[in-house]
Amino acid sequence: MAKHRTRRSAEFKAKVALAALSEVKTLAELSSEYGVHQTQITRWKQELVANAPDLFGKAKKKALNHEAEVNELHRQIGKLKVENDFLSNLPGLNSTGRRNRR
């Protein structure tokens, strides 16, 4: 009989990874206590260590840059829409933007 994959919350993963970082208990003890394989605890610990700098400002800057980029893209979309509307209303042009032959 196959086991189903258990999905763990971010809070649970952080709690286990912090417990592994503290090194008060061994991986085997943490594994039996939380019901998670030792390899998975090690991965969560490595991920926590790798992403820790993002918690102190780097991610916030990325979010601000993302918002600025989205605003710039919206501005460009508006400009292109105005240009498209203007060109589509010109007499003598077909839908492809080429002059009609008479």
Rank of each mutant, 00 (worst) to 15 (best):
M1K: 14
A2N: 13
K3W: 07
K3Q: 03
R7N: 13
S9W: 00
A10H: 14
A10E: 15
A10F: 10
A10Q: 15
E11Q: 14
K13G: 02
A14M: 15
A14W: 10
A14S: 13
K15T: 10
V16A: 08
V16M: 05
V16C: 04
A17S: 11
A19T: 03
A20H: 02
A20N: 02
L21Y: 09
S22N: 10
S22V: 00
S22L: 11
E23L: 06
V24C: 05
K25Q: 13
T26V: 04
T26A: 05
L27P: 03
L27C: 07
A28T: 14
A28F: 07
A28Q: 13
E29K: 12
E29G: 04
L30W: 00
S31E: 09
S32K: 15
S32E: 15
S32R: 15
Y34T: 01
Y34P: 02
Y34E: 03
G35Y: 00
G35T: 03
G35F: 01
V36A: 06
V36I: 08
H37V: 06
Q38F: 11
Q38H: 11
T39I: 08
T39H: 10
T39D: 04
Q40L: 13
I41C: 02
T42F: 01
W44I: 02
K45W: 08
Q46M: 05
E47W: 07
L48D: 00
V49W: 03
A50S: 10
P53K: 06
P53R: 09
P53D: 01
P53H: 06
L55F: 07
F56E: 10
F56N: 10
F56V: 10
G57W: 00
K58G: 00
K62Q: 08
K62V: 13
A63P: 00
A63L: 14
A63W: 05
E67F: 05
E69T: 13
E69D: 11
V70S: 03
N71L: 15
N71T: 14
N71D: 14
N71Y: 06
E72R: 14
L73F: 02
H74V: 12
H74Y: 11
I77N: 01
K79M: 10
K79D: 06
K79Q: 09
K79A: 06
L80M: 08
K81D: 08
V82F: 04
V82C: 06
E83D: 11
E83C: 03
E83F: 07
N84S: 12
D85H: 09
D85Q: 14
N89I: 07
N89R: 15
L90S: 02
L90F: 03
L90T: 01
L90V: 13
P91G: 04
G92C: 04
G92N: 08
G92H: 05
L93M: 03
L93R: 04
N94V: 04
S95C: 09
S95V: 15
S95T: 14
T96Q: 09
G97L: 08
R98Y: 11
R99I: 13
N100M: 13
R101S: 09
R101I: 14
R101L: 12
R102P: 04
R102C: 05
R102L: 11
